[in-house]
Every structure is written in C-alpha cells, then in structure tokens.
Computed example of a mutant assay.
Amino acid sequence: MKHFSNEVAVIVGGSSGIGKETALRFADRGAQIILIARGIERLQEVVAEIRKRGGKAEAFSADVSNMEDVKKAVRRIEETYGRVDVLVYSAAIFYLSSVEALDIRLAKQSMEINYWGAVHVTREILPLIRKGKRKSIVYVTSLSAQCTPPFFTAYAASKHALRGFILSLRQELRPEGIHVGMVSPGPVNTPLIENDIHKNMYRLPPGVPVLKTQPVAEGILSTVVKRRKELVLPRRMTAAARLASAFPSCVEWYYRLSVPGWDKLIRAQIKRPTV
C-alpha cells in the first residue's frame, strides 16, 4: 500500500544502517526520498538502490554539525519541493570510553552530531514541515538514554540531551498539529556499533537482544503513520525502560546481578592517566 504517495520524506543519516533501511521502506510506500549525510558516494549508492526498486530519491551531502551545511541543504529542498511531509533524524556516531581515557574531541563530536545536528536540522526545516501535509518528525534516540550502562558517558549524554529536546519540542509544536515522535531502540546490528558490541565495554546482559535494522525501520514508519509519541524496541523492553527512567539504580543492579564479575570487569577497562 502506498501510504506516502506524493509525500516528501527527508531522512537524515540515510547513507547506511537504520537511516538507509528507513529510506527504502518509505520509498517502497511511494514517498519522494531526500537523503542527507556527509558521504555523497554512499548516499548515491542508496539513491541508486531506491531507483532500482522503482522509487524516487535524491541526495544532498551535508555535515549536520555545521549550520551552514544544513542551511544550504534545506534551501535546496525548498527550491525543489517547497515542503517536507516527514522528517526522520537518524544521524549518529557511537563512542565508548572510560572518563579518564575520554577523547574530548570524539566526545564533543558525539554531542555535535547526535544532539546539535538534530537541533540544526529541526530549526531549519520546520518552516517546510509546516507547509507539508503529514507534518511528522521522528527522531531515533536510544534505549541507553534510559537504561544507561558504564562507558556510555559520551554517547548516552548526547541521547539524553536529544530526548530532552524532543520532549520539549513536542509540547511547542502540538498546537500546530505537528507530530513529534521518538523511536528508542536497543543495540542494532549496524556499522555504528560493530567494532564495540560484545566487547568488554559493551557487554549485553541476558534478555537484551541485538536488533536488525528492518524492524527498527518498520517501527519508524509505524510511528509516523500512527503518530506515536514513543516506541521502544524491542517492545518487550518498554517496561524496563520506564522502570529505569524512574529508578536508574535498577540498571546498575541488573548488570551486577546478571553479568559474572561485573565490577571486576569494569575496573579492568579503566585506563588511568600516568602521572
């Protein structure tokens, strides 16, 4: 069913992983896809794949942490299409470290892309959303913004910031009939985490699966269609996410109980600066 025929969907972070899969899903349902990310070559590969499947797509290269880049991309969208019906923000970088070994440059980059990038894009594209028919914005956050393990100081902080931004923005835009939703997945099998998952700084306790991109993309599409406020994936983690938000110490307790030698494992990863 062509749910999105003649609608304009902007996918930020659409060159790989969740963003790419989301772009394919929206294109299959009739949307005109606009992809935004830094690497134009990878974006063009996604454009070619969408067109091969009979869809419509265009790509604009932009660094979302750079306001001028974002302004140029949005200006081109306005000149060509005049409106945006759906915005999906899935751009992110992933960085794990103990605090003492933290690379401040990478930590700041996490905030620049995961949080400030969303602010830049939202601020510039809102006038086009107001001209759209569906008026929907969905952000990909993270389960780690509620269930936060150790070594996630840079990544989780950026996702906590994004979550706060979304909760406030939703209230600002509700009177205008603009939908603001968030999809909060647990770990997803993408290039973003492939170098860290299952290693000592990213141990998963029992009951936390590694998701594929397809159900996350379907969740994003469903969030737009049903105008959901929030979707936690996998859905069976919803209660855990709510409990962790209310009682953060539950996360610490669960890790210590379920992962043998957890405290010892943490201590082994901490690299202290030499004096």
Rank of each mutant, 00 (worst) to 15 (best):
Y202V: 05
A118F: 00
G177N: 03
G55T: 05
G177T: 07
F152R: 08
R76Y: 08
N189H: 15
K159N: 07
L169N: 06
R38I: 14
T141W: 00
L35M: 12
R25Y: 08
R236E: 14
T148V: 06
F60M: 14
L231F: 06
R236W: 13
N66L: 02
E252G: 13
L96V: 13
V210T: 10
D103M: 02
F152I: 06
K71L: 01
T22S: 11
R105D: 03
Q214R: 11
V188C: 08
L87E: 00
A23N: 09
V251T: 13
V138C: 06
R83E: 11
G17V: 10
T22P: 14
T22Y: 09
E218W: 00
P185I: 04
M201H: 07
L87F: 10
D103V: 02
L106W: 00
H198V: 03
I36P: 01
R272T: 12
G14F: 07
N66Y: 07
I178R: 10
V64Q: 05
A48I: 07
P127W: 04
R163S: 11
W262G: 06
Q32F: 12
Q44S: 15
G261E: 07
L106P: 00
H179D: 01
V86S: 00
G117S: 02
L192E: 08
Y202H: 04
L221E: 14
R42N: 15
H120T: 04
F4P: 07
G177H: 08
S61C: 15
H3Q: 13
W253Y: 14
G39E: 15
P248R: 11
T274Q: 14
K229W: 11
P205S: 09
F247Q: 13
V10Y: 01
E218Y: 01
L162N: 03
L265S: 08
V74A: 00
Y255E: 09
V275L: 14
F151K: 01
K264D: 05
P206T: 09
E218L: 04
A154P: 05
R236T: 12
I266R: 09
I77G: 00
P206Y: 11
K199T: 02
T122V: 06
E79A: 10
M201C: 04
F60A: 12
I18D: 07
M111F: 12
L126Y: 10
M182P: 01
V86P: 00
I193V: 14
Y81F: 13
D69G: 03
A157W: 01
V64G: 01
G39T: 15
K133R: 12
P149Y: 04
R235P: 15
A92G: 13
K229Q: 14
S61Q: 15
R123N: 10
A156N: 04
N189L: 14
Y81V: 04
L102C: 13
S97P: 10
L43W: 13
R235A: 12
G39A: 14
K199E: 07
A268S: 09
R235G: 14
L43C: 13
G261T: 10
E124V: 09
I166R: 03
M182L: 12
G132L: 01
A161I: 06
Y139I: 01
L221V: 12
I34R: 09
K199Q: 03
L204V: 08
T274E: 15
A48Y: 09
R256F: 12
V121N: 00
Y115S: 06
E176R: 11
I197K: 02
